[in-house]
């Protein structure tokens, strides 16, 4: 199994598997968020939050997820550094005019923006919920719907989250089909299909996530502070 770590395709295999794992998490998270749109004042959402909370399975899940994030970032950094070295220090004076997709060439930068957003996001929610509960803080929030409502009543935060989601969209449109290409599951016939699937899945995820800040910002702006 040593080849996984010391061959280019092995390292890329790690990137694609961790990427697909994170994609599955995003799908779950997005579905959970959508319950906030139910006309029940966030009851279902809070129920899911409480079910997860600081229970052992939620903590175990969080640790696995964090490991997935770390592996994805560590390998992205490693591959990017190796690639810069392979490119060499001499740059082209006439730049590179090959008409590749913008996202394909900026995956690492997009990833950095996503990490920044993630830090804000963890601070906004996870720190006040699971983390607070774990350290036994009496102020720990078990149902998150109040936090969501409060946060997105600030248009600034809503816009920051929307920009973050934009970066995620670009990252996913390249990342999803790219993962399948790396796993060798693409080809002449499947390449256009995977591209299409990739666009659809990324758009679904991002629109699903974006619905929440947009909805709460709109509710706040149109109906005042209720």
């Amino acid at each position: 199994m040593y080849w996984l770590f010391n061959s280019s395709i092995g390292r890329k295999f790690i990137m694609s598997i961790s990427g697909i794992f994170l994609l599955l998490f995003l799908l779950f998270h997005m579905s959970m968020n959508l319950t906030l749109l139910l006309p029940d004042d966030g009851k279902v959402y809070d129920m899911i939050c409480e079910f997860l909370g600081a229970n052992w399975y939620a903590v175990a899940g969080t640790l696995v997820l964090a490991a997935g994030v770390v592996v994805h970032i560590v390998y992205a950094t490693m591959l990017t550094l190796q690639n810069r070295k392979a490119r060499g220090s001499d740059k082209y004076l006439s730049s590179n005019r090959t008409e590749t997709e913008w996202s394909a060439k900026n995956m690492y930068v997009l990833g950095l923006i996503i990490v920044l957003g993630l830090v804000i996001h963890l601070w906004n929610f996870w720190y006040k919920m699971q983390f607070a509960e774990l350290i036994g803080c009496p102020d720990a929030v078990t149902g998150g719907s109040g936090l969501v409502k409060e946060l997105f009543s600030s248009p600034c935060y809503a816009i920051v989250y929307l920009i973050w989601l934009g970066a995620i969209w670009f990252h996913l449109t390249h990342g999803v089909w790219s993962a399948f290409q790396t796993l060798g599951l693409s080809g002449k016939i499947w390449y256009p299909r995977l591209k299409m699937i990739s666009n659809i899945v990324s758009t679904l995820i991002v629109v699903g996530f974006a619905a929440i800040p947009v909805y709460f910002m709109a509710v706040h702006l149109l109906c005042g502070n209720n």
Binding site: N6, Q82, N83, A86, R87, N96, T100, E101, A104, W177
Partner: peptide, 15 residues
Amino acid sequence: KMDELGFGNCTNTRA
């Protein structure tokens, strides 16, 4: 051999 010679890792940019 390709890795050994210092070629980079493919990121599927299609260039």
